[in-house]
Structure formats: structure tokens, C-alpha cells
Simulated assay, not measured.
Amino acid sequence: MTPPVPHIAAAGSALPGDPVDNTALAAALGISAEWIEVYIGTQTRHFARDLLTGEIRHSLADLCARAAAQAMERCAAEPADIEFLVLGTATPDHLMPTTASRVADLLGLDQLPTYQLQSGCAGAVQALDLARLLITGGAYRCGLAIGGDVCTKHLDVDRDMSAAAPGDLVNAVLFGDGAGAAVLTADPQGPALLRTLNRCTGLGREPGQIIDWFGLADRHENRQALTEDYKAIEENVPVMAVEILWELLDDLDWSPDDLDFLLPPQLSGRMTRLITEQLAVPAARPISCVDRTGNNGNALPFLQIEQLLPQMSGGQRALAVAVESSKWIKSGFALQKP
């Protein structure tokens, strides 16, 4: 018996508050808006807490539930139709209960398996990968894959960044908050999810990014919660992106000319443009959003899918590439509209 092929019936997103432009962010941090525009290339981002007061306005669970509810509404899926929920995030609201279980509660879902995958930029693809396996295994016919992050919990709005090193500045201006979601179904609604790639390739390599969790015993230690080797990321991510692209193409027996759409890695406006050029797929239309949303981690592939779905017509193909620099994870996926 041929296993069912999962399809993405609909996608949704949630971005908190109004967009924060570079002028407003630079003024709050005491740095140059021109520096952000030149070296990061991101124009706006959204924050789950007030930039001036630090007041938290949205939790990750709130954003993920909003994105999932929108996706369900767009394909007329009822809570009773959802048989599982998978959430990928690097910034859960709590260690316990899981944000995935909180999202299920907010959506009115009960008596179903929930999975939370702790991962950075590859977490969204990992969520799609697990959702795909649950459907192709035949046990389930419909479920939710969700990705989201609230990164501003690591942004100190009271810190004067005017004398900060470039590495610190990057972390202060690169990220945003948000969530995205997709309804996957065994019924032929929307493009088929033909392949997912999810592979850790960091054996023996230093992490490119570390996010610490502080407990009662160590929260007063003099170390940053978030550290990033941006030079290593700039050097390695473009190379890995090209490798991912060609591995997926070879696996599917597609040529670059077969691609109608390309979903490139979403690091920053500047880096995404450079990587898209290096991927060298001129026939494919790039689908990118990071220059307007900021790097909101696991939300980004779902935000790209949300943009992609209305543009795809019958027979068209799309390929997505995502790289996680924390321990150098290669990930991606391929879609084809029936």
C-alpha cells in the first residue's frame, strides 16, 4: 500500500505589535540606524514586549496559537480535525509546561499528542519533518506544524550599546519575534511536502551560537545569555546552504531549472541577499521576508510558506533551505503543487 503524501493545506502567521524600524531601534539602543541598514540590511522587526518600557505584551504561546488558528481558518479545519501538534522553538515560555501544550490548550485541542522540539532555525523544518512522518506512517491524517520564537527576552533595553563590540551589536539588532504555522493533511489540499532534510553536521565543531538558560543557582553569573560567532556564521552558512540545495535537488532528481520558487535561509536582509546570489537559481523566484520581520527564528520558514502558497499554481515546485548555526544543522524541504 502506498503511504499517504502530506500536503500543506494552509499557513498562518502572527507578528506582535507594530513594526519597529531602524530609527526607533537605534534610538532605543544608542547606536546608528545607518549601521543597522548597511551591515544587517533588515528594515523592520516586531517585538513581543514594549521597546521603551520592557513590558511583555505577548507570550510565545499567544503568538503560536494565533498563527495556528489563522492557518486552520484558512483551510476550514476544525479543532476536531487536528490529530497532533508539533512545535519547534529555541525560546519556549517555560521549561514546563511545554509551550506546545499551552498552544493546544489555547486552540481548544485535547486528547492528542503534542511534541515540542528544542531547536534554532532548523526547528521549523524539524516540525515539518515530524509532521510528515506522522502522516506518511498512516496513523494520522491531519495535524499542525508550528514554529516561533520570542527573542527579545534576551534584549536589554536599558543597556547603552553605543560602545558595544560589533558582535554584541549584531545580537541586539538582528532578531525579532513571531510565529508561523501550517496545517498538514493527507488529503490533496495545497502543495505536497515531498521531502524534508534534517541533519546535524556539527561533529567536532564549535557551536556558532549558544543560548543559555539561567536557573536559581547560576543566574547571577557574569556571562551573557546569548553569544554568537557571527564571523563563523557568515563563513559557513552560505557554503552549507549550497550543499543543502544540491542534496535536495539530487534526491528529487530535479535540476535547478525545474525550480519555480526558492525559499532561502533567513538570517538578515543583507545575508539572505548574498546567500540567494550564491545559490544561483535564477529561474526560481525567491521568497523572503526577513528584511521586514527581523530574524524571528523558527517562525521564518512558515512565514515564507504563507507567502508562497497563493503564488503557486499547478505543477510548480519550490525548495526551501534553512541552516542552524548553533551546532551546524542542515535542513530544508521540497514542495510541489499537484
Rank of each mutant, 00 (worst) to 15 (best):
E228P: 00
S119V: 07
L226H: 01
Q224A: 10
A139P: 09
F214K: 09
R223T: 13
N222R: 15
A122F: 07
N171M: 07
L193V: 05
V183Q: 00
D212Q: 07
D156I: 00
G176R: 11
A181I: 13
H220Y: 08
K231R: 14
L226V: 05
N236A: 14
Q126C: 09
G204D: 06
E235V: 02
S119K: 10
G148K: 04
A186E: 06
E221S: 05
Q209L: 15
Y115D: 01
Y230W: 11
N198G: 00
K153D: 08
R223C: 12
K231A: 13
L203M: 07
E228K: 02
D156L: 02
Q224N: 05
N236T: 14
L117G: 00
L226R: 00
C200W: 11
L203P: 00
Q224H: 03
C151A: 12
A179N: 08
D156Y: 06
S162T: 14
A181E: 14
D160N: 15
A182P: 12
A122T: 04
A145V: 05
T185P: 03
P191Y: 05
R141A: 15
A124Q: 08
G204C: 04
S119W: 08
G215D: 12
M161R: 14
A164L: 04
G138Q: 08
E206H: 02
T185N: 06
R141W: 05
I135K: 01
I146V: 14
P166D: 13
D187R: 13
P238E: 14
A145T: 06
G178S: 04
E221Y: 01
E234P: 00
G215P: 01
D168W: 00
Y140E: 13
D168N: 02
D160S: 14
D212I: 00
R205N: 05
G138P: 04
G178M: 08
Q116A: 06
I146D: 01
A122L: 02
D149V: 04
G178F: 08
L216H: 09
P191R: 03
L194M: 02
T196W: 07
N236W: 13
A122N: 04
L203H: 10
L216V: 10
C142E: 11
G190V: 00
L134Q: 13
L117S: 06
D168G: 05
H154F: 15
E234L: 13
G137R: 01
L197I: 04
W213I: 12
G176V: 11
L155E: 07
